[in-house]
Design a protein around this nucleic acid. Sequence first.
DNA 1: GGGTCTTTTGACACCGGTTACCTAATTATT
DNA 2: AATAATTAGGTAACCGGTGTCAAAAGACCC
Lengths: 338, 338
Amino acid sequence: MNGAGKPTINDVAAAAGVSKKTVSRVINKSPLLSASTREKVEGVIRDLGFVPNLQARALALRRNFIIAAIHDNPNAQFLVNVQQGIQQGIAGSEFGLMVQPFDRSDPAFESEVRAFLERQRPFGVVLLPPISSDEAIVALCRETGTRYVRMGSIKMDEAAHVVSSNDREAVRDAVTHLIGKGHRRIALIEGPEGFTSPQERRAGFEEAMAQAGLAVDPALVRPGSYTFESGVAAAECLLALAAPPTAIFASNDEMAIGAMIACRRAGVRIPEDISIVGFDDTPLSSHVWPTLTTVHWPIVDMARTAAQKLMGSEDAAGELPWMFPSTLVERGSVVAPA
Amino acid sequence: MNGAGKPTINDVAAAAGVSKKTVSRVINKSPLLSASTREKVEGVIRDLGFVPNLQARALALRRNFIIAAIHDNPNAQFLVNVQQGIQQGIAGSEFGLMVQPFDRSDPAFESEVRAFLERQRPFGVVLLPPISSDEAIVALCRETGTRYVRMGSIKMDEAAHVVSSNDREAVRDAVTHLIGKGHRRIALIEGPEGFTSPQERRAGFEEAMAQAGLAVDPALVRPGSYTFESGVAAAECLLALAAPPTAIFASNDEMAIGAMIACRRAGVRIPEDISIVGFDDTPLSSHVWPTLTTVHWPIVDMARTAAQKLMGSEDAAGELPWMFPSTLVERGSVVAPA
DNA sequence: GGGTCTTTTGACACCGGTTACCTAATTATT
DNA sequence: AATAATTAGGTAACCGGTGTCAAAAGACCC
């Protein structure tokens, strides 16, 4: 023990009467060690309360033990779910989770990301949508030798680098569910333009309508931006139509709840007068009244797997699933039209 | 350049024709260097795109560049706000933010925290409530030599180790506001027992009532747990009373919104029949209808300052503010009683 | 009992920086 | 002009681990 401070590998080696390399072998569970030596060293490690210094290991191994989640300030619940999933994935390992937000609208966006990767040199990064579909950032990861996994709604890379959900099919199922209940005038509140997941959700909507032989009325497709306010605004437009819809599919829960509020303000009852379906299955969706029928988005599972893909070998990562099914959760906001 | 990989301090030294120590001095902005040497070395650093290896620095300096936020899975919005504040605080520095959740109900809680601190050895930790009031964890920080800042609602340590809000006064103001509007039968929905912030909020409620010479009717004080559901349940009880309250103060927004839902289900109009005040000023509070009058909780500012306290010297930390005022935000859920 | 093949272990350099200490050069002092 | 005081910069050891490679210790065989 070097006077004060934590014991180091040298202290352990001295106390156990072996070389530090041997202690290193014990730490790393090297197979070429006699059982007796291993036990002896393990005993000393326990007695001294030795914990290997990750910084030193990082330097020697030329890799650290940091998984970084890189995001563009998404919805709080989404971000927390991703963090929770990653934490589940790294639980029991030596890895730690670093979280780093960026502003994609900042002209320095790319150089900021580069600076982060070069400075912290995380072992791997989880790219949250919509950054996950930014090829420039992916190129940056490759260039800096950073392992990465992209979270998204379609497969946009090799399986080892992707975890995604089948939003399109899930939305198709959800809208088909509405059609099955007897709805014909079904509105869509879209997500922000230029991103993958809203596009997929829209495609699912259109596929369901087409499958049922229903035309998509352009008046019933309203833009949105995944925010509560945009849900309110979209629903207000829809309710003002001469022939308002009998059901609304909102591309996320937040907009769905915005739509619910707009309906309530307008005196339109849910679900009697209008059915509403959301997407995400945030806690909020079971907190509103009536509870929101929505599509469960398996973010936690996706994030957990993303972390596992980063920690394992490239081959192992390819073996892990990259597709996670989103499934409809029926609650109280959908009934047959009057 | 060692073949491949990033350039190291040795590469820079060789290219600039100086010793690595001189390069180190440039990196660390040491004052004892001639301007000409400095410029020469800086030029080489730029040309080579040299970025110092944080792992190596961490090892040599015996300290790393990680601020960890330690929490017990609080509300998503709160957690994200704290993260945002810390990110603001460390912006432009070499520090990174690591986020680590723990489960206080797990019997291994303390040893888990210890393992984290010993393994990652973060330079400093921000303790989120309610962990921030756990003296065992604080003791652990001291023992492991980890700098810490506690987020809370009262000063529970030296100024250098605390950022807090004056919940008590803010609640007193909020309830006095209700009284000023003419309310007399005011209900309180409490937060979970055994934590500091709910206690403070309750104290503020009682102080306001006492100042106005009003008695606190025990029937109008309902327990809660900061969750939406507990807000619903509490409000249901209150509305079922023979003499229901004309106003409700809920100890956080989530419960306030639960209470709003319960009122709506019961056919009680807000704010005509009952006024409601929350606490936190989450985005949600302006997303409901009517918008929620609530107390703004300056979490982002607190977290930013917490990070600054951790990064600076102990003395500098003591100079930074430790108290951040919570203030009432008047929105649409309060009017005079009928 | 000596030689050969394995298995176990250690010596030493190295990862990329920093600190402590020292030397050489420059400037100030007398 | 000689000496002291500053300043600029270099040398070598070290932070706490890991990789390489060779030596030491057993196991096995004749």
